[in-house]
Design a protein around this nucleic acid. Structure first.
Lengths: 154, 154
DNA sequence: TATTGTTATACTCTATAACTATA
DNA sequence: TATAGTTATAGAGTATAACAATA
């Protein structure tokens, strides 16, 4: 089997290409890092999210969240407060400016995404969606399972 | 739409998780970088590959190829010679030690890959394969097309 | 003049550990 | 003692540019 037909290689290549296409938008065009973009995405949709939920739902670690949140706060896109119920946690909220920026970026990112996915047939898109969901479950199951406990064990 | 159901996010997360699972093998277990692993993969399969083909087929740039090739040469896994037909190019070949290492890594990587994909149904695997191939074509078409010429234009 | 490979440089990202505050 | 957030640091990875050799 050649490298080009090796499944892990194809997955990595396609994900990297897709990611680059979007970084051109939210990164180069709007000046957001991947971490900032993810945080803003989550916070723009909900009135408030605490630090634990934010890390878990963005699949970022606490260091990445802390730094991205600080940059977003410095730019005036989110606020950060100590959580009342547990003063070790933080509660993040999106500002009006943050929501406004998110809407602009979201439109541009969606447009770029669509311009790629529109090259595919509807059946192929459906297969991709199904296959990707299944793979996500498989990888998650594997990580929680026998061999890959190394991520959570710590 | 929530972040968790946003297609680009899911693609990035699943690809990153999968990649990590394999880096545990070829990286932590066998001490190869992603670039070295790709070069070795290609070279183990063919008697010789020149530098241009190597860069193109691994989707690495010339700097990455040059550095990864040097490390593989230092370790005794490949050889590097000036190409006879064009002295600007190099011709790379895998050594016996390189092939031996590759076989061991390949077995371990395949085992890890299978242990993840085996969590999926056959129909889901088929959908994934189809969808991923279509997406790869779509992204490639997009890059060559109107908006994304920025990669090749230079 | 253009292309290839190499080297150099700066920048970003990642992983890990230390430190402070809170539980 | 354990957990959360922050800060610090080192290592790996990425992007770009300069350079020498060759076409």
């Amino acid at each position: 089997m050649q490298l080009e037909t090796f499944f892990p290689y194809r997955l990595a290549v396609v994900a990297e290409s897709f990611s680059r296409a979007l970084i051109e938008v939210y990164g180069h065009e709007f000046g957001l890092s991947r971490e900032e973009w993810r945080l803003l995405f989550l916070l723009a949709e909900e009135p408030e999210v605490d630090s634990l939920a934010l890390a878990r739902r963005t699949t970022l670690d606490k260091v990445q969240v802390s730094r991205a949140a600080q940059r977003l706060e410095d730019k005036g896109f989110i606020t950060r407060d100590v959580a009342a119920h547990d003063r070790r946690l933080r509660v993040y909220r999106c500002t009006a400016a943050g929501r406004k920026l998110f809407q602009r970026v979201r439109v541009a990112v969606d447009e770029r995404t669509r311009s790629i996915l529109d090259e595919m047939s509807a059946a192929d898109r459906k297969a991709l969606d199904r296959g990707l969901n299944a793979l996500l479950e498989a990888v998650t199951a594997f990580q929680a399972g026998p061999g890959g406990g190394s991520l959570q064990t710590k």
